[in-house]
Design a binder for these strands. Sequence first.
DNA 1: GGTTCTAACAAAAACGTTTTTTCATGTCAA
DNA 2: TTGACATGAAAAAACGTTTTTGTTAGAACC
Lengths: 372, 372
Amino acid sequence: MSSDSFYDWAVEEASPSRIGIRDVAAAAGVSPTTVSHALSGKGRLPDETRQRIASIAEELGYRPNVNARNLVSGKTGLLGIVVSASQETPFGLGDFDYFIQLLSAATGAAVERGRALVVEGVRSGPDAFGTVEVDGAIVVDPVSDDPLIDALDRANVPVVTTGRRDRPPAGGRPECWVDNDHVEATEEILAHLESHGAKKVGLISTAPVTSYTRDAISGYKAWCSLHGQEPMISTVEGPINEGAGFRAAEELLDLADPPDAIYATLDQLALGVLAAARARSLTVPDDLMVAGCTDSQASAWADPPLTAVLLNPEEIGRSAVSTLIDLIEAGDSVPDPVVVPTGIVERESTARLTGPGGVQAAGQAGSSRDSE
Amino acid sequence: MSSDSFYDWAVEEASPSRIGIRDVAAAAGVSPTTVSHALSGKGRLPDETRQRIASIAEELGYRPNVNARNLVSGKTGLLGIVVSASQETPFGLGDFDYFIQLLSAATGAAVERGRALVVEGVRSGPDAFGTVEVDGAIVVDPVSDDPLIDALDRANVPVVTTGRRDRPPAGGRPECWVDNDHVEATEEILAHLESHGAKKVGLISTAPVTSYTRDAISGYKAWCSLHGQEPMISTVEGPINEGAGFRAAEELLDLADPPDAIYATLDQLALGVLAAARARSLTVPDDLMVAGCTDSQASAWADPPLTAVLLNPEEIGRSAVSTLIDLIEAGDSVPDPVVVPTGIVERESTARLTGPGGVQAAGQAGSSRDSE
DNA sequence: GGTTCTAACAAAAACGTTTTTTCATGTCAA
DNA sequence: TTGACATGAAAAAACGTTTTTGTTAGAACC
């Protein structure tokens, strides 16, 4: 009656008490020990037996009891995930859709490997969440002086960050991360803007407390120096919302020689840019091209729909979990960093030219590449 | 080395392998059975023994191993939490801060009672999250035709909603919910606006797919009829963001007899109202008073800072978890619904008059009542 | 003075795995 | 032919609880 599958549309056939290792053993005509060894790759068994047992287990839909397993291993089976923050940066994250997608995928990946992911979002102090014992932790978008990260390191809790730390962990501890290549992604979106007719591109970004911001800025600067353009950067302080993007856009558009395209490192900022354009009766994309980083529903529904850099948060979440579990299980070897590919979803906000000459049809759903 | 406390600032004294029930038993000079009975309130023991054992356990810092407990109880120890959605309402939730606060508090409450809370946010289809087995689920802001809720009901998964369903569960299943009194909260914020000099108040709300929206609208209408004011309601369709609030505000302000105060049911909409006021050179609060539902960082930092209705999401999260666990454990009796008190944080956006006559000093941090 | 009852507790079984130990069987070298 | 050793697999122990079943001592009853 309880403990049912979350999406149990077709309620499993009267669920005659769950399949256990003993059932698999009986079906295969071996002992539970052998099943355990076969499935875990331990013990001494011929490969043929291993495969036979594996296929029987598969067929029976055997899923080991997580609690029993954790009981033996002495682990809690809990992984923590937390959005990095610090005194100066109360909340480093600007994007709801991004976080929810990452979280959702990470949850799935964790459960698939027999762990549960517990979230800690607001951190008023060391007391919050004080009693949770986790086998490891994921820190999203680590900011420079987040005290939590040091605390985790000191407590020897395995940590994987999504986005890179600004300095390696103390005490020679391993550094594990999952990230996009934001330098490359920035160069690609800038190339996209240029190929669609942008003459001068401005950048709106947050303070460089996270690696993705630093990467975007350096990618932008590199691109500028390569194209002989003077960098035009407006940095947002305080909370990240459309109003902040609006003000930053005004700053850029008030320049003596204003840009005719703006790339914002967060979708909310880009939405603010659209508002600023509207306030000045600038047509998007003809007078001003706008693109943002991180796609969202709001971007897709904006007027006009926003071109966006796709960061693949699901893949980041899954990889982070997988890396963290590897880190927890392989005590000695350190898992390699993971770089998750990015993409661009092209929408009307940058549809000024398509290729050399020619105007792209203005449709709500732009073409998308690299989106699964 | 693993399984350390998340915030292990003072790393526990070399942690000489965790305190177990046997340690408590030895310290108390009784058997593990007796300790278990004493702490769970089962078995036949004199109260004096119970208390003695409880205090020893407390003193030793005994915390039962969750996995062992779940193993014998046959539960997974997992609670699911999901934001309601449906075909027509892809994402019912408008507020990041609100959700994170609720989630964070709920996580803490769950862990405190030996459960883990797993999140499913994006639901692309029945496959997502398909393999997670939960002992129960929390559905946040249930919308009318969310297929998930029916699926959970059919699978006999205990469900608690935050916000009320629009119709009772099928098959005579118990209905459990945690909610604010949004009708009352709406009346209070309207009274606040009126007492500070508002003559005519407009309402901006989302489509009435959630109970809180329906409550806000009915509270507003009741207040209007009581005050002889014609209701002025602008309903937002599509994604909820500042742009949507902006457009809704324009709609109200373009009326022949426009309001001099606007209450928006989500903070992002209220921020959009501020932008609309600025675009028309209306001074807030003198020309237009603005208030939103749900406080957020962005509201506090807005220009001017926004008066907001406090919904106490932490308390909602904690109560939901607690109610859900009660529901899971008490197979027969159904826990009572919980109504979480609301409050108002008064800030500059409504600081036109303070009481009869007199103008409140314009400071960033307004007074706050009912905020803990 | 035996039986029955109850209070207070302890011993043992169970939960479903993993890990460690043991036990056959064969094979090979001496 | 006899150890020594490898292979394949099973038995047993362990993980830390809760639950079920026993056990003892004393009180109550006839």
